[in-house]
Nucleic acid binder design. Sequence first.
RNA 1: GGGGAGAUACCGAAGUGGCCAAACGGAACGGACUGUAAAUCCGUUGGCUCAGCCUUCAGAGGUUCGAAUCCUCUUCUCCCCA
Length: 401
Amino acid sequence: MTDTDPDQALARLRRFASEIVTETELGKRLHSAADERQPLRVKFGIDPTFTDVHVGHAVPIRVLRLFQDLGHLPVLILGDATARLGDPTGRNEQRPALTEEQVEHNAATYLEQIGKVLDLAPGRCEVRRNSEWFTPMGFFGALRLLSRATIARMLERDDFQKRIEQRLPIHLHEMAYPVMQGWDSVEVRADVEIGGNDQLFNLHMGRLLQEREGQRAQVCLTTPLLLGTDGRKMSKTYGNHVALTDAAEQVYGKVMSLSDEGMADWFRLATDIGEEEAAALLAGHPREAKGRLAWELCRWIHDQEAADHAAAEFVRRFKKKELPSDIPAVEIAAGNYPLPNLLHQAGLCNSTSEARRLIKGGGVRLDGTVVADVAQQVEVGHGNAVLVQVGKRRFARVRPA
RNA sequence: GGGGAGAUACCGAAGUGGCCAAACGGAACGGACUGUAAAUCCGUUGGCUCAGCCUUCAGAGGUUCGAAUCCUCUUCUCCCCA
């Protein structure tokens, strides 16, 4: 335990909270934890359904980090059991089932990435997998657990409600999801659970189940959902996410294409910049503010050097409209190619048809000049690398293999 | 167990014998304008040896000169009744 004043701790946590159930209760627990020198057990669960953790996921993890810095104990739950089922939250269809191998692989990559935000050292953090208790539970154990929730309660969730209205299938096992997540809280005796604000229902389920088990119901702290590059909720499914595995240039570029409206949230949730400084930045030119934001994100996900480089590269490419300094080289068999085929072979387009369309649309440059002729022949021979550009972001130097 | 409706391209959704590679909308991509923002405007959106050809409308068969459209079976979903 650190000696941070509990009231101060609460104030710092509030920055990330969209809702706290209840704030009074959280305050009390922070106080009693300090008095008894007994860290709070702060739970956060993440299902290893994909290979990348993105910045949106990282928000609750940052809250976990904050709790950790305040001397509390994060309990990170890798939902290897729940991942195989799939969280129906916000879904209008069932998720595909994952195999055990996929889940294991994803779990490993998740831990590595989460380690960038949270100190995972034993003693500083507890990492659990929920297969630990769900596997031995057995069918009847599972039924006993499910008997604690009702259909009516589940139907309060509007994602289920919508699916019913739209006459989409809802499978029984999908209803099990919130109950499983709630049971995790019972198993780890969570004092607090963190989650995105779309998780509120699931977090409440944890309270309910804990009470039935005679435990003190956890405090729920939800964080606002970070919006992705297209203004929708950040999600891998939408492809609008900034991943913790993205290269610095990608991170910088993606952040720069955020909408202005979303910026304030990003400053608050994804950086450590203080409120006043953030307000000052936001009052200035949005481009400057966004540049700072992009730089901060790069520094966080990579390091300062990478951030500086990404910033310089960005200016070079989009302000001065120069070519990027590192254009990937692509080798293909030497020969004379019709332009569409060249683009396809070099991997810049998915098909020659797509290449033709882009050429007709004026989106293709050869050695810096727009080429609108579909029939253009390009010689790929010894010594002469051809600089090919498709749109604003796809570049390659094509040379013979 | 019985009855009814349905499965169309990335998604939503028209089409119900030839004029359908398939309306429309969303999304995406390219172009213009910019701050690689948003908004707006224009274009594109199955593949190819590209003014022509080839493969698509849940899957497998069938009818027909010709099928996304009709018939049979299969798989999946929704609704109603038991």
